[in-house]
């Protein structure tokens, strides 16, 4: 069963095995659907939704299935329903390209409006969609600082404590007995955290990739991997077995 199917069964009171962690001292819960919930602040963070990726490709002549937005939003609905947060922060690359939000079909716009009702919604701008969103609830920003945390799309090289970022689509590979399993993950060394990509057609980048170098203190780095219906937390040093 993959994440799309799991989201359908993820009812609000359906218990899921999450991981309870802290970033720069702020409590957080890694949800296996790919969202990070900050209970003390009542904020839900998601990242790299890459909405309208299918149609972005279709505009360039590759007719990818037009169902990715729907599938991603369904999972978003499920994770919002589970935590019912006061605030939702989407950490950039919310849309796959600049025109995505303007050209999005009304059906999907409606789904987002329903989800945003009664909540504060913040769109952080990403490199794919630097100009903000068009015709959607919420406010756009390049960066947000709040309660000792910094929310931005691209992780800064000079690691600031309390940074929560996206952009890199971290994934981890566990190796045991000559077999490998690779999953998207929340990557954190307790000082900062990089979110897994939330969109259903987004790929992953391995934690060992050179783009990840220098971002974390590897001795305390933990990959909280998205399993079918739970989070599997593995220390970076234990990934190879």
């Amino acid at each position: 069963m993959h994440r799309i199917a799991h989201a359908i069964s993820a009812l609000p009171d359906n218990p899921a095995l999450s991981a309870r962690i802290a970033i720069n001292g702020v409590a957080a819960i890694c949800d296996p659907l790919g969202g990070l919930y900050l209970p003390d602040l009542d904020i839900l963070v998601v990242s790299d939704l890459h909405l309208e990726k299918g149609s972005a490709f279709a505009r360039r002549g590759m007719m990818l299935p037009p169902y990715d937005t729907l599938a991603t939003l369904r999972i978003l609905e499920a994770v919002i329903a589970r935590h019912d947060p006061k605030t939702v922060i989407s950490l950039g690359d919310n849309f796959h390209d600049r025109v995505g939000s303007a050209l999005m079909p009304d059906q999907f716009r409606g789904m987002i409006e329903t989800m945003a009702r009664g909540r504060e919604w913040i769109w952080i701008n990403g490199n794919h969609d630097p100009d903000g969103t068009v015709g959607l609830p919420g406010t756009s920003a390049d960066e947000l600082r709040y309660a000792g945390l910094i929310f931005r799309h691209e992780p800064a090289k000079d690691a600031t404590a309390g940074e929560i970022a996206g952009h890199l689509h971290p994934a981890a590979t566990v190796t045991r007995r000559e077999k490998r399993v690779r999953r998207a993950c929340f990557a954190t060394d307790s000082r900062r955290l990089i979110m897994p990509a939330f969109g259903v057609t987004t790929g992953g980048l391995d934690l060992r990739h050179k783009a990840m170098h220098g971002l974390f203190d590897r001795t305390s780095l933990v990959a909280h991997m998205l399993g079918r219906d739970r989070i599997y937390s593995v220390r970076f040093s234990n990934l190879l077995g």
């Binding site: 095995l17 991981a19 309870r20 566990v174 399993v181 933990v222």
Partner: peptide, 18 residues
């Protein structure tokens, strides 16, 4: 592989809470 992955994750250590 799926079978191995399941048993594999069983012995993974980490804190888990409901």
């Amino acid at each position: 592989l799926a079978e191995a992955a399941d048993e594999l994750f069983e012995d993974v250590t980490g804190e888990h809470h409901l």
